[in-house]
Amino acid sequence: MVEPLLQPISFDESGMATIWRPHTCVWINPEVQAGTPCVDGTRIPTGTLADLHDAGLEFEDLSDDYQLSIGQVRAAIGYEDSLAA
């Protein structure tokens, strides 16, 4: 029952959790931004993108400004929206 929930978690050789991918294109790594959810493989917090989008920036602007794909921007904002629901 618990095993499917653990699949998006990477473990090191000692069995400690190191990286969690709770959503498409999102990772939580305690060594990056103190474990703040970020766009996978980057140091860009998903919350920052969501806040900027809420302030009126379009997906395309965020994509250009942060050198991300539109899909990454949409996934990051989607993750933040799922937390608010």
Rank of each mutant, 00 (worst) to 15 (best):
residue 1 M to P: 06
residue 1 M to K: 08
residue 1 M to T: 02
residue 3 E to V: 14
residue 4 P to K: 10
residue 4 P to T: 08
residue 4 P to R: 15
residue 4 P to D: 13
residue 5 L to K: 06
residue 5 L to N: 01
residue 6 L to I: 04
residue 6 L to Q: 09
residue 6 L to N: 02
residue 7 Q to S: 13
residue 8 P to Y: 03
residue 8 P to C: 01
residue 9 I to R: 06
residue 11 F to C: 01
residue 11 F to W: 00
residue 12 D to V: 09
residue 12 D to S: 11
residue 13 E to H: 02
residue 13 E to L: 07
residue 13 E to A: 11
residue 14 S to L: 10
residue 14 S to A: 15
residue 14 S to I: 05
residue 14 S to F: 06
residue 14 S to Y: 08
residue 16 M to Q: 05
residue 16 M to C: 06
residue 17 A to P: 01
residue 18 T to Q: 03
residue 19 I to R: 13
residue 20 W to Q: 08
residue 20 W to I: 04
residue 20 W to P: 00
residue 22 P to W: 10
residue 23 H to T: 03
residue 23 H to P: 03
residue 23 H to A: 14
residue 24 T to C: 09
residue 24 T to F: 01
residue 24 T to Y: 09
residue 24 T to D: 08
residue 26 V to E: 01
residue 26 V to R: 00
residue 27 W to E: 10
residue 27 W to Q: 12
residue 27 W to Y: 02
residue 28 I to T: 04
residue 28 I to E: 09
residue 28 I to L: 07
residue 29 N to F: 05
residue 32 V to F: 09
residue 34 A to D: 14
residue 34 A to E: 13
residue 34 A to L: 14
residue 35 G to I: 13
residue 35 G to K: 02
residue 36 T to L: 08
residue 37 P to T: 12
residue 38 C to I: 13
residue 38 C to D: 04
residue 38 C to M: 07
residue 39 V to R: 01
residue 39 V to G: 00
residue 41 G to Q: 08
residue 41 G to R: 12
residue 41 G to K: 11
residue 41 G to T: 09
residue 42 T to A: 05
residue 43 R to F: 03
residue 45 P to D: 07
residue 45 P to Y: 12
residue 45 P to I: 08
residue 46 T to H: 02
residue 51 D to L: 04
residue 52 L to T: 01
residue 52 L to Y: 02
residue 54 D to V: 09
residue 54 D to N: 05
residue 55 A to C: 12
residue 56 G to N: 01
residue 56 G to E: 06
residue 56 G to W: 04
residue 57 L to E: 07
residue 57 L to C: 10
residue 61 D to Y: 15
residue 61 D to C: 14
residue 61 D to F: 15
residue 61 D to Q: 15
residue 61 D to H: 15
residue 61 D to K: 15
residue 63 S to P: 07
residue 63 S to T: 08
residue 64 D to P: 00
residue 64 D to A: 13
residue 65 D to V: 07
residue 67 Q to M: 04
residue 68 L to E: 00
residue 69 S to A: 10
residue 69 S to K: 02
residue 69 S to N: 09
residue 70 I to W: 00
residue 72 Q to R: 05
residue 74 R to T: 11
residue 75 A to Y: 09
residue 75 A to F: 04
residue 76 A to G: 06
residue 78 G to I: 14
residue 78 G to W: 13
residue 79 Y to I: 06
residue 79 Y to H: 14
residue 79 Y to R: 02
residue 80 E to Y: 08
residue 80 E to F: 04
residue 80 E to L: 04
residue 81 D to Y: 12
residue 82 S to Q: 15
residue 82 S to Y: 12
residue 82 S to N: 12
residue 85 A to C: 12
residue 85 A to M: 14
